[in-house]
Design a protein around this nucleic acid. Sequence first.
DNA 1: TTGCAATACTACAAAGTAGTATTTAATGTA
DNA 2: TACATTAAATACTACTTTGTAGTATTGCAA
Lengths: 109, 109
Amino acid sequence: MEHLRLGEFEEIVLLTVGILDGNAYGVAIKDEIEARLKREVSIGAMQTTLRRLEKKGFLESQHGDTQPNRGGRPKLYFRISSAGMQAIHYTRQTRNDLWNALPQWVLNT
Amino acid sequence: MEHLRLGEFEEIVLLTVGILDGNAYGVAIKDEIEARLKREVSIGAMQTTLRRLEKKGFLESQHGDTQPNRGGRPKLYFRISSAGMQAIHYTRQTRNDLWNALPQWVLNT
DNA sequence: TTGCAATACTACAAAGTAGTATTTAATGTA
DNA sequence: TACATTAAATACTACTTTGTAGTATTGCAA
């Protein structure tokens, strides 16, 4: 399962691509993460991570129609691949298992 | 909340310390992770991560009694600090929120 | 031809990993 | 009782991958 492992930020990006559901391109993903997690994300971090996830086969990309209201480079849309789906499921499952194994009293500390 | 952020492996280690509940020292934590996640963990990765978590205030350590059955250096026991508890709660919450925001159909892909 | 909206590139910092060395102490043996 | 041997653990060092920031470039419309 090593090949399904996701870094902390990688997982957040992958999930957010899923949430944006067809409207996931660089800047939109960045904005969405910032809004939801109240956490600053640089555009560089965004691009690097997207490309890395694509290279690993967890994301697929395709250029969108080139019809913006007011200038702008064509957007590059991302969507989760089936390997990507496997990865987020695996990650979630693993963490839930650990969490469920925590003794009750530890949680009330 | 940036100061509560945990890396992928850091989170696993922290949770496993909680699971071991008073019996968490380097080698035991390593063995537990390997058994639960079916994932190889080097002893070096283990030590580095434990020290990092301690330095960040998410773990506290103390030497155990020096009475092993058969030789051996005194064990160094770890437990989750209250900042550590906050961190795992925060991380879990954040991920669950994202997960819950995923459109249903994406999950069945 | 200017300005905006987006992606691409480059370099660096932090987290993750592996391999090896060192420390501590019990045990066997002369 | 001294001492070599061995087991069990932690400490150190170097390297890879992931995360982050800053800046440059591209493409398009007014």
